[in-house]
Design a protein around this nucleic acid. Structure first.
Length: 459
RNA sequence: GCCCUCAUCGUCUAUCGGUUAGGACAGGAGAUUCUCAAUCUUCAAAGCGGGGUUCGAUUCCCCGUGAGGGCGCCA
């Protein structure tokens, strides 16, 4: 194991944002790539917002994405505690250290970090008040993605509020120091704050970690970065919609990073092998749910049967409770789902796409019926098909296909003369899997009775 | 207002000074006579503007412009 130690430090807000997921992912990827340690630290300082289930949202989302942490809540580690709310003593000790070294002072109940340099009183037009400026040297941030960034802090700033709680910047830096974090990989929205962090590191006499500020994810429509209210912004949503977690991860990897060539769908092991700072982009990326959906479909069509069926069943259990599909014979359920696998774009489409397989009360699409019934002699074709059923070989969809082709040839017609009416009678619609495939799955009995019923109702 | 970052097809991106500027998603057209939202083929689509540097700039530098972010006793 290398010396690399990275951390993901979310705050328990009750949801898991896609931007957080990507930050967690990039940290995880770098840790795995470098053979380092991925630390999870929960920054739960704003106690009013925290509750047990808020913590679980973080754990469950990371687990669903497959981002396992080496140190942190639930797994422990020797640099804990890993909940920031349990680190107050550590924070206090560091404040004392600064106070003792005269690098911090109290004013109006709050504690400020003292910058070093000549001081002067200046009237700030924008804030409409007099402030004390310090002739400080600019902080130099040697960012692994941005290069050298200089930014000046020229006013003392609060590190502990008058209520005794450390501010984010301070707790964050102290925790990073005491946890031995070597690489701080986070969103670009923190880049400007980093000068404050550098001042704190220096005041504490701690070496700077490597910084890497990754680009942000912008909302699909409209201005600004993605926020929790935007479509597709929450990881929970993808879980609910039964997206393939590997597909979500793969998509997120490509939002701001690429392997340097055309490859898009890649196994995570390969991404881990190739992932490094030079491959990370500098510009923000607009989120595109259609490309995400496409990636998901790619994973779905190549998914082994067992997993596909179990994902489908889990989805029906969660989202289509009471569906007849759940009561159906497991073997039949399986056949139906596998028949639909190459045809649907997502697991979430399955209940609607397969509904007629699980009930005899499937509805007929009026427009489709009018179109199909209005052309040629569909009823005759259906009767011919019904008579041929007894002679069909039901062992596979291709033997059924051969039988139907022979029937059509005998009547000097084409398969296309039977297909639309048969599909209408059997499914009530004009879209779906191949006719012969669905006949094979439905089986001879269902096919026969459905055709009978249709002929009875339409003659 | 001040500060920081970024800038190639509508979107995600490749190119690390010399390419017919490539791929993917989305879109258009066509094919598959077993439908289709599936599959295949195919088409259209880009270097923000102005200055430099250079034999040569999408690529390097500067200035604009645009986009994003930060300026709390929020995280």
């Amino acid at each position: 194991m290398s010396q690399v130690r990275v951390r993901f430090a979310p705050s328990p807000t009750g949801f898991f944002h896609i931007g957080s997921a990507r930050t967690a992912l990039f940290n995880w990827l770098y840790a795995r790539h470098a053979g380092g340690t991925f630390v999870l630290r929960i920054e739960d300082t704003d106690e009013a917002r925290n509750s047990e289930e808020f913590y679980n949202v973080i754990y469950e989302s990371l687990e669903w994405l497959g981002l396992n942490w080496d140190e942190g809540p639930k797994v422990g580690g020797d640099r804990g505690p890993y909940l920031q709310s349990e680190r107050s003593q550590i924070h206090r000790e560091h404040v004392q250290k600064l106070l003792a070294a005269d690098r911090a002072y109290e004013r109006a109940g709050a504690i400020y970090l003292r910058l070093i340099g000549d001081r002067s009183e200046v009237f700030d037009d924008h804030r409409k008040k007099t402030v004390t400026k310090v002739a400080n040297a600019p902080a130099i941030i040697d960012d692994r993605i941005r290069g050298k960034v200089e930014r000046l802090e020229d006013e003392d700033f609060v590190i502990v509020r008058s209520n005794g709680k450390p501010v984010f910047h301070f707790a964050n830096v102290v925790d990073d120091i005491t946890m031995g974090i070597t690489h701080v990989i986070r969103g670009e929205d923190h880049l400007s704050n980093t000068s404050k962090h550098v001042e704190i590191f220096r005041a504490l006499g701690a070496p700077l970690p490597q910084f890497a500020h990754i680009p942000l994810i912008l909302k699909q429509n409209g201005p600004g970065k993605m926020s929790k209210r935007d479509q597709g912004a929450l990881i929970e949503e993808y879980r609910k919609r039964s997206y393939v977690p590997e597909a979500v991860v793969n998509f997120l990897c490509l939002l701001g990073w690429n392997p340097g060539d055309d490859r898009e769908k890649m196994p995570i092991e390969e991404i881990v092998r190739l992932f490094d700072f030079p491959g990370i982009n500098q510009s923000n990326a607009r989120f595109d749910d259609r490309k995400m959906a496409h990636m998901n479909t790619q994973y779905l069509v190549e998914m082994p049967a067992e997993r596909y069926v179990s994902m489908a069943r889990a989805h029906f259990e969660r989202e289509a409770t009471g569906s007849a599909a759940l009561a159906a014979d497991p073997g039949y359920f399986r056949s139906v789902m596998l028949l639909a696998q190459p045809k649907v774009k997502g697991i979430e489409e399955l209940p609607a796409y397969t509904s007629y397989f699980f009930t005899e009360e499937y509805s007929f699409d009026a427009k489709v019926r009018a179109k199909v019934m209005g052309k040629g002699e569909p009823a005759s074709r259906l009767r011919e098909l019904k008579e041929a059923i007894a002679t069909l070989d039901w062992t596979s969809d291709s033997t059924i296909e051969q039988g139907l082709a022979a029937l059509a040839a005998a009547k000097n017609l084409g398969f296309g003369d039977y297909q639309p009416i048969a599909r209408l009678a059997l499914t009530g619609t004009n879209v779906g899997p191949t006719l012969t495939g669905l006949m094979h799955v439905l089986g001879r009995e269902r096919v026969e009775s459905r055709i009978d019923r249709f002929l009875g109702a339409n003659s």
